[in-house]
Amino acid sequence: MRKGLKLTDILVTIVIAVAFGIVYILWGSIYYSVKPLGLHVDQLIYGMWFIAGPVAFLVMRKPGVALLAEIAAASGEFFLGSPWGLTVLLYGVVQGLFAELVFMAFRYKKFNMSVAVLAAIASCVGSVLMDFAYGEIGALSLWNLLLFMIARFIGSIFFAGVFAYYLVKVLEATGVTNLVRPVSSKDYAALDQK
């Protein structure tokens, strides 16, 4: 078998990601409508921006897909004219990379909710690291920083972990995932049946 992603895998991943890119753009306005509430309530919904990686991986179940999806979603958001501009590209690469590392740590063999949640947490860590460089959040007062982190972690576990998992679960019911997943030994066994 040839190594690496095939054209079909790449195209499907990128299309899923671009669809999420549109969601990311729309999410920006929701983010700003929540922002005035203050006290980092907005961080609770920040997790939505990590969802493309886990969803794409859970759908495709192949190596490299999570990273590609998060980059593609970020560039889709970028091309559609995100007000954050180049920020989203840099963040996207880091978030995708961190999610990918989690899936890699499980040798791309686990597709359950806990691995999705772990990937979400990893993406969140990546984004927080970026925030230390970009937003200088290390200089916030301690109580404020803690509030910020807790809100963001809860949000990412909910959106990019739990929500992503159930979204793919429902997608599986439509049968569409069978198109793109790698064949398993079960599929071969089905062929042998007389």
Partner: peptide, 8 residues
């Protein structure tokens, strides 16, 4: 999503 995956 399912429509997009099928189309892709």
């Amino acid at each position: 999503l399912s429509g997009s995956i099928r189309r892709a």
